[in-house]
Design a protein around this nucleic acid. Structure first.
Lengths: 195, 195
DNA sequence: AATATAAATTGACCATGGTCAATAATAATC
DNA sequence: GATTATTATTGACCATGGTCAATTTATATT
């Protein structure tokens, strides 16, 4: 049987996260160095890796937190009534992920449908997003403004696919094309949801 | 003006690739170690990185080669006439990518719409695949078996999005769900192409 | 053939993530 | 409060990718 973590451990973890967040805010997530985090947090290197499986694990917690905040906002907003409004509500999220390739990478890696590790805030966020989308879509289906030949869950997951797709293209194209991910998303969503 | 590469360089490159391919065939792409490749190829470490930007660059060339072979096969096959047949033709590709997460990662990273580096076989493969899909879809649109309210190019790119989506889910779920990527793909494609 | 210029390769060197036996701090038991 | 068991932390150590000034090899020029 595993015991609850001691107070000291929780404090250490909080310090590591807060330091890491500070660095990330300044130099970006990709700019995080294990050495720097532990030195600023005043702990040894091994401690970091006893709290997080690896650097990606740390990133996942940081990024997962941000995503949760964005989802909170999404949930509070008035439900969309058109595909275009769905896109508008996904704007912030798209903008956040588009900021750094490593965000996209981490989200894609840890956004499992099934949460294996407890620490994986990301899986949770992923599932939560699908649920939100599903709710919206369900309401729109009942209103008759979009197709109803497919279950809402499938349409919702499809939207996540398109989200990832436009982001992938965004990063691959190295921002050469003027198209933002937001602009690229709309046609897909519209075409996906048409009656 | 940059000169054409000398014979020696081409030989070295070929040896590096062949050695790397051998190791990959045995231990998987993720099992490639720079030290091992150069030692088996009989060159110094720096040589490898003068031929390829980094290990991912080497992987990209190896994987890009395989993808090209799969595309050859796809091109030779009889054009599909239903969404299900499209999926069937994408089977091999899906199976190849599903084999190792690192394949998916490399493809996603380098599958840019615009090829920056000459060496990026992957971008080329990516574009070629869209063209093939576009050809199929165009024919099916003319035959009236699928929707025609969207340009073939958009539908083709959407399919690539779904491909990546089911692969992402596949790797995230750690193969827990019995669903293969192939099985997961079909509903999306059907729903995407319906009239 | 001797010399000059450019291409190709080398390997010592560094940066960074990650490990793990040893130690310190905390909680449980007597 | 002394003893034992468990949890938390430590930091020397390793693995691996990647760099770059120096060196060797090939090509052009005289």
């Amino acid at each position: 049987m595993t015991r609850a973590p001691q107070k000291r451990r929780l404090e250490t973890r909080a310090r590591l996260l807060s330091v890491a967040e500070g660095i990330a805010a300044q130099r970006g997530y990709a700019g995080l160095r294990a050495e720097e985090v532990v030195s600023l947090a005043g702990v040894a290197k091994g401690t970091l890796f006893s709290h997080f499986k690896d650097m990606d694990g740390l990133l996942a917690v940081l990024i997962g937190g941000k995503v949760m905040m964005l989802l909170d906002k999404m949930e509070q907003a008035a439900p969309p009534q058109t595909p275009a409004q769905i896109c508008a509500l996904l704007n912030d999220q798209l903008e956040f992920v588009a900021r750094e390739r490593v965000i996209f990478d981490v989200l894609l890696r840890y956004s499992g449908v099934t949460a294996a590790q407890a620490e994986e805030v990301i899986s949770e966020g992923f599932m939560r997003q699908v649920r939100i989308l599903e709710g919206w879509i369900d309401a729109m289906q009942k209103a008759g403004t979009i197709r109803s030949d497919q279950p809402a869950s499938m349409l919702a997951e499809g939207i996540q696919g398109f989200l990832n797709h436009v982001l992938a293209v965004w990063f691959c194209a190295e921002h050469e094309t003027g198209d933002t991910p937001q602009a690229a998303l709309e046609p897909y969503i519209s075409a996906w949801l048409v009656t």
